[in-house]
C-alpha cells in the first residue's frame, strides 16, 4: 500500500515539475529582454497558461496532503526545520498566483500597472523556483538535526550552503528550458517561434552548466554527488541517457515535430527526477541522526487505506476531466471573451 502512495507522490511531484514547472518557466522567460516581441510573448503566455494554471498548481497541494496525512513523520520535520525556506516559497507562491491573475483580469489594461504585474510575476517565478530547489536539496544533506536546540544549526544550517543554492539555480534553468520548448509549439508566428527556439538553445546550455555547478558545489557536502551518482550503474545510466537525449531533442526541433520535442524534453526532466529518486529512495529525509524512510514515517494502516481510496477515486474524476480540459484548449484557434 505504501508503494501505491509512493507512486502517487512520485506522480504528483513529476506532474508538478512538468506542468507547474513550465508555468514557472514562462514567468522566468518574461524577465528576459524580448524587444518588440514583448507584448506578443505576454499574450501567448497568458493564453497558454490561463486555463490550466489552477489545475497545474493543485499538484503541489496533492503532494502536501499526501505527505501530511500519510507520512506525518516526514511532513513534520520538513515543516519544522525547513521553516524559513518554506516561508520564502509561500511568499513566492502568493505573489506569483495573484499577479498572474491580476495581470489578465485587470479591467484597465494600461502600460504602467501591466509592467508592475509582469515584473512581480516573473520575479516571483524565479524566486519560487529557486526555493523549490533549495528545499529539494536540503532533504538529502543530512544536516537536519532533530536534537539540537541551537537556533542556527536547527533552522538555518540545514538549507544554507553552495549546494542548495546551486540546485536552486538548476531548477530555474530547467523550468525555463521546459517553458521554451513548450512554447515553441504554441505559436505559428515565425518570429516568436524563433525567439523561443533561441531560448530553448540558451537554456539547454545553461541546464548543462548549472548541472555541472550542482556537482561542483556538492564537493563541500557530507557525500559529494559525483561519488554517489557514478557509483551506481542505474543513476549513471539515467544521467547519460538524459544528456544524450539532447541530440534527439534538436533533431525533432529542426523537423518541427512539436509533440516529439515536448515528449523528449519532458523525458529528460523525468529522468533527472528519477535519478534523484534512485539516489535516495525509499528514504524521504536524511537527518543528522539517520535516515527517515517512508515506511517508518507512515501513518497507521487504516489511515493509509483511506488515503489510497481518496486518491484512486479522485483519479477517476481528475484524469478524465483533465484530458477534457486539455482537449478543449489544445485544439487550435482560441478566442476568449
Amino acid at each position: 500500500m505504501i508503494e501505491i502512495l509512493l507512486f502517487f507522490i512520485g506522480a504528483s511531484l513529476l506532474l508538478y515539475v512538468l506542468l507547474g514547472g513550465s508555468d514557472y518557466g514562462a514567468g522566468i522567460l518574461e524577465m528576459l529582454p524580448a524587444g518588440k516581441l514583448r507584448e506578443a510573448q505576454k499574450h501567448l503566455i497568458n493564453e497558454a497558461m490561463g486555463p490550466v494554471w489552477e489545475a497545474n498548481h493543485v499538484w503541489l497541494i496533492v503532494l502536501v496532503v499526501i505527505l501530511f496525512m500519510g507520512f506525518p513523520g516526514v511532513f513534520v520535520p520538513l515543516m519544522t526545520y525547513l521553516h524559513v525556506p518554506m516561508l520564502a516559497l509561500l511568499v513566492g507562491i502568493v505573489i506569483r498566483g495573484a499577479t498572474f491573475t491580476f495581470r489578465h483580469y485587470d479591467a484597465v489594461q494600461e502600460e504602467k500597472s501591466q509592467r508592475v504585474y509582469t515584473w512581480l510575476f516573473s520575479g516571483s517565478s524565479i524566486w519560487t523556483a529557486f526555493w523549490l530547489g533549495v528545499i529539494a536539496a536540503s532533504l538529502g544533506r543530512g544536516l537536519i538535526d532533530v536534537e539540537t536546540r541551537d537556533v542556527w544549526s536547527a533552522y538555518f544550517a540545514p538549507w544554507i550552503g553552495w549546494y542548495p543554492a546551486a540546485v536552486g539555480v538548476f531548477v530555474i534553468c530547467i523550468f525555463a528550458f521546459l517553458a521554451s520548448v513548450y512554447l515553441i509549439g504554441e505559436t505559428e508566428e515565425p518570429e516568436l517561434r524563433r525567439l523561443f527556439l533561441r531560448r530553448a538553445a540558451v537554456f539547454n546550455v545553461l541546464v548543462v552548466l548549472a548541472g555541472g555547478l550542482v556537482f561542483a558545489a556538492s564537493y563541500g557536502e557530507k557525500e559529494n554527488l559525483p561519488a554517489v551518482f557514478f557509483a551506481h550503474p542505474l543513476t549513471l545510466g539515467v544521467l547519460v541517457v538524459a544528456t544524450g537525449l539532447f541530440v534527439a531533442l534538436w533533431v525533432f526541433v529542426q523537423k518541427h515535430r512539436t509533440a516529439l520535442t515536448r515528449i523528449v524534453a519532458a523525458g529528460q526532466v523525468t529522468l533527472i527526477l528519477l535519478g534523484w529518486w534512485l539516489l535516495y529512495a525509499p528514504n524521504a529525509l536524511i537527518t543528522a541522526q539517520g535516515k527517515i524512510n517512508f515506511y517508518e514515517a507512515a501513518a497507521p494502516e487504516a489511515t493509509l487505506w483511506q488515503l489510497v481510496l481518496a486518491l484512486l477515486v479522485g483519479s477517476c474524476f481528475i484524469f478524465p476531466s483533465l484530458f477534457f480540459l486539455l482537449k478543449v484548449f489544445k485544439t487550435k484557434g482560441r478566442e476568449e471573451f
Binding site: 489545475a55 497541494i61 496533492v62
Partner: peptide, 18 residues
Amino acid sequence: GMPFSWEGTAFFLEAVAI
C-alpha cells in the same frame, strides 16, 4: 486527514472546471 484528501479531489475538479 481524510477530509483533507477528499478536499484535494474537490479542488482539482474545481480548478479544471474553472
